[in-house]
Simulated scan of single mutants.
Amino acid sequence: MKKLFFLAVALCCSISLFAQTDFSGTWKLNNSKSKLGEQFSMAPKTIVVAQKGNDISVEKHSEFQGNEFTSTDKYTLDGKECVNKGFMDTEKKSKAVWDGEKKSLTVTSKIPMQGETMTVTEIFSMKDGAMVIQSKASSSYGDLEETQVFDKK
């Protein structure tokens, strides 16, 4: 009986050890908890995440200069390069990589813009039931860093 008990405990521990964070759901931006750019923000108003197995889809509903738009990016969770539609029909090349404990996911994207390349890094994590995205964009135009906090709808 003791062996069976220890086997069950070991199995539960190993399952939780290898479990990865699941970001699936519909998430609404919480402006009061976020730290956004004062003059410009990259934060979408809503994000819909569908995560299954080795795949994740991130649909962002944003607004810029009074116009609403939606972008959808699909990534594999194995660190391989993924290509999605970028600005003005360019190709956005991204890699999604888990941290060692699979608690946070870093997506690094290279986006061509007017003969240059902008690098965007987004680190997805969970804190107190909210999805947090640490976002940084770098280009010759400058850098922009934000902490975007999303509550589950």
Rank of each mutant, 00 (worst) to 15 (best):
E145D: 14
M113F: 15
Q148P: 10
I56R: 01
Q51I: 00
S32T: 13
E116Y: 05
M131Q: 12
F23W: 11
T106L: 06
K136T: 14
L36E: 08
D55Y: 11
K60E: 09
Q148I: 15
D73M: 09
S32H: 10
G53Q: 04
F6T: 08
G37V: 05
S41T: 13
F5I: 15
E101A: 14
T147S: 13
F5Y: 13
D128W: 02
G86D: 03
T119A: 03
D22H: 01
K136C: 07
G37N: 08
N67L: 11
L105Q: 03
C82Q: 14
M131H: 05
Q65I: 05
S125Y: 06
M113R: 08
M126I: 13
V132L: 03
E81A: 14
C82W: 02
D55V: 12
F64D: 10
T21K: 08
E122L: 07
Q20T: 12
F23V: 08
K95G: 05
T108S: 05
M1V: 13
K80V: 07
H61W: 02
L105G: 05
L144T: 00
K103C: 06
S57R: 09
Y141A: 14
T106V: 10
E91G: 00
F124T: 03
I56T: 05
D73F: 06
S62N: 13
T21R: 06
V107W: 03
T46N: 13
F64A: 15
A137N: 06
F6P: 02
K3R: 11
C82N: 15
Q20M: 11
G129A: 08
K85C: 00
Q65E: 14
E81I: 11
V120S: 07
H61N: 13
K2A: 14
T21W: 00
S109Y: 02
S139H: 07
K93V: 03
S32G: 02
F124K: 00
D151Q: 11
D151W: 01
V83C: 06
Q134P: 07
I47P: 04
S62G: 04
S125E: 03
T106Y: 03
T21L: 01
V120L: 12
G142V: 11
V149T: 10
T90F: 00
M113K: 10
E116P: 02
T108M: 00
K3F: 10
Q20S: 15
E68D: 15
V83W: 04
S16I: 12
L4Y: 12
